[in-house]
């Protein structure tokens, strides 16, 4: 069975004809050609495929593409301002050593964004909880926490000024 779905993808109204069994990750990577979201395990254990659907961080490898009909999807490619300004989380991950091999980074950054959008000043435990589903083999997480904390410590207005939603 196929169906047509309509959704907002990284700020752009989009329509795609899909098979019912297509996952959101397959849609993003194979149909839309956006390869920033990664497949690390294909079974929702590693979080490398994390994207944001209507403010919620989800594992795109487990999420059916059909479910995004009428919703808003944001991937790592849609996080920076189209004018080229990086999201503060991207800047923080770069500057604080939150990225080594980088394979987990898109998912890690998207999970961090979903966290900070909901809770701009998380405690260390709240950061750990929010990122528990995003595995990293390189960093020992220390500099990833540093990166998230660097943004959460910033002035809330400043973040909102550049946050993705406000730039659309």
């Amino acid at each position: 069975m196929t169906r047509k779905i309509s959704y907002i993808f990284n700020g752009n109204a989009t329509e795609t004809e899909i098979e019912d069994h297509l996952t959101l990750l397959e849609l993003i990577r194979d149909r839309l050609g956006q390869t920033g979201s990664k497949e690390g395990c294909g079974s929702g254990e590693c979080g490398a495929c994390t994207v944001i659907v209507d403010d919620q961080a989800v594992n795109a490898c487990l999420y059916l593409a059909a479910e995004i009909d009428g919703k808003t999807v944001q991937t790592i490619e849609g996080l920076a301002n189209p004018n080229g300004t990086l999201h503060p989380l991207q800047t923080a991950f770069i500057e604080h050593g939150g990225i080594q091999c980088g394979f987990c980074s898109p998912g890690m950054i998207m999970s961090s964004k979903a966290l900070l959008d909901e809770n701009p000043n998380p405690t260390e435990d709240e950061i750990k909880h929010a990122l528990a589903g995003n595995m990293c083999r390189c960093t020992g997480y220390v500099q990833i926490f540093d990166s998230v904390k660097a943004v959460s410590a910033q002035d809330e207005q400043e973040i909102k000024a550049v946050a993705w939603k406000e730039t659309q």
Binding site: Q34, E77, I99
Partner: peptide, 21 residues
């Protein structure tokens, strides 16, 4: 100097290509 990883910007924006991509 604690200079950020040179390819970190491409990794943070999803532009970098792994064999998967």
């Amino acid at each position: 100097k604690p200079i950020p990883k040179l390819d970190a910007i491409d990794k943070a924006t999803g532009r970098v290509k792994y064999i998967q991509d």
